[in-house]
Design a protein around this nucleic acid. Structure first.
Lengths: 328, 328
DNA sequence: CTGAAAGCGCTTACAG
DNA sequence: CTGAAAGCGCTTACAG
């Protein structure tokens, strides 16, 4: 494999000059530039990124830490970020924490040791000291979907309180009087906020909250929904706290034999690909995932380029997709 | 940020000794080892992986190139590989080609320049010269899901011909006499093989093949299915060529008002998360995605460790999940 | 406009 | 068992 010295020898210049051509330094004469370019092409030379990174003390790599890559919301975010990074010449190191604070800590350390140029983080936990340590090193972090405790990090969020509140109101407005909520994990901001939005809406009309814990997981949500149905024969509405749990909840509803929407109306928070496919098609609050991920990437890049000093927080709104699961 | 010299100074040894401790070289005396370890802990030192990579002319990073990360089959493969890599101390650079040969070529070049230690590739195209160039450099490649033309690459595959043939037979055995196929892209081996399996089964019973092209995409599959239904009023069975296309096909069926399975029976190849949720639940041929991805990772690692010289090919079988979309 | 030289932070033969 | 020194492949002040 040719290196910068082979090219220099071939073009009869110094390796400094080859480097200047590589980095589009304007101080190289056109003739020399052409000669070097020809040598590069002839030898099939590609600069060693690792050597460059070591010398410049920075890489062209961004770290992407997600809490669950199999959640379609995050899958789409990963795709969006990867694609934007590709276009701008960055590489993406993907890390999946499975909501584990230990994995998050470990990955943050690894990414710092790899000298990534910036990190987009869907935090499994917000109060991770490692986050501050990484920021101390000057590596910018953009929190996606959930906040972190260090205020130096930018954040791209959705208004989960409003979404859950509106979802609950949607059922209330359709005359439902016994509405349950399948909650995610309360250690996670998203889970807390959505639960809070549900509680707010219930309080507004003086209905008693009925809450089951689905742990952001399909299997747990299935059991939780089954229990909710068993313990509350009058239940006529359910709000589901995220897309993975909607699979479990739908399964439990199917097994229970209750009709949707006649017996029970349903609203999902998050709008997974299968929402329109199930029968009846599920009414859902969709996050603008693509726009959010894109915003997070742009924020990171502007930080990397030091175009901005003040941390920013962007909050996106959900969009209601009315389908069939709440009746006419 | 402390480097190896700061640690050496702090522990009153040479940086060579620190390096030996870091790399568990047995020749370091226990006392010195302990002293160095203490200094490392006290200073919070973490070795610079980039410098190590440059010196050792290799990295701890593997490249993962997939053709479509939003396809749940590949999402799960990515998750499996990332997780296995994490456990063994490797990093994963994720690349998504969107089935574009140009992106594949570009990513292969980037990964080679980054000196990844090996690559797992779901090829967008099999006859990419860059694949051979990367192999020439000594970087092992494991093809996942689809073959590549260079025989030095290992491969982990599924028996797509048999799966499609069995799927079609499943409908034939249930008395269906006018069976259509929603095909993927024929430039891709998976697409060709599944189409061929369908054709084989149809030939066996002397039925005329009815083929529509869904391009491995949801929207195209929806249009294709709608046309198929319009042009073939007698259609009483459909085999769907992959999971993304099944969303489109189901949507078109729903809009057409035909009843499943009474009017039309349905078998999907691939078993996405929503297969069990739709009404009626979709009968499907599932790939052992997790096992495949794990096998690919193990193959790559054994190559990296040079435990093996001869290229290997592993072929997995699909598993039939009988649900409701083909009747009793 | 160009080159010689130093140095990024490691690892590893070599010598003792 | 330990250290001095070379070198991985680049980039960049410095000098001319």
């Amino acid at each position: 494999m040719p290196n910068i010295k082979s090219v220099a020898a071939h073009a009869n210049v110094s390796s400094a000059t080859v480097s200047r051509v590589l980095n589009n330094d304007p101080r190289v004469s056109p003739e020399v530039r052409a000669r070097v370019r020809a040598s590069i092409a002839e030898l099939g030379y590609r600069p060693n990124r690792i050597a460059r990174s070591l010398r410049k003390q920075t890489s062209e790599t961004i770290g992407l830490i997600v809490s669950d890559i199999e959640n379609p919301h995050f899958t789409r975010a990963v795709r969006t970020i990867e694609s934007a990074a590709y276009e701008q010449g960055y590489r993406v190191v993907l890390c999946n924490t499975d909501e584990s604070p230990e994995k998050q800590k470990s990955y943050l350390e690894v990414l710092a040791a790899e000298q990534v140029i910036g990190i987009i983080l869907v935090p499994a936990t917000s109060d991770d000291l490692t986050i501050s340590q990484v920021l101390d090193l000057g590596v910018p972090i953009v929190a996606l979907d959930r906040t972190v405790d260090d205020e130096r990090a930018d954040a791209v969020l959705t208004d989960n309180v409003t979404a859950a509140r509106e979802a609950t109101r949607h059922l209330i407005n359709r005359g439902r009087t016994c509405i349950g909520f399948i909650a995610g994990r309360s250690e996670i901001r998203t889970g807390r906020d959505r639960l809070y939005g549900y509680q707010l809406a219930m309080e507004e009309v003086g209905q008693e909250p009925i809450i089951a814990t689905g742990g952001f997981r399909m299997d747990i949500a299935q059991r939780a929904t089954a229990e909710l149905l068993r313990d509350n024969p009058d239940l006529d509405g359910v709000v589901i706290g995220n897309n993975l749990m909607s699979i479990g909840a739908l399964q439990a509803l199917k097994e229970s034999g209750r009709r949707v929407p006649e017996d029970i109306a349903l609203v999902g928070i998050d709008d997974p690909p299968w929402a329109a496919l199930v029968s009846p098609a599920m009414t859902a609050f969709a996050q603008p995932t693509h726009a959010m991920a894109h915003a997070a990437f742009e924020m990171l890049i502007s930080r990397i380029r030091k175009e901005r000093v003040v941390p920013r927080e962007m909050v996106f709104q959900f969009e209601l997709k009315v389908r069939e699961s709440c009746g006419g």
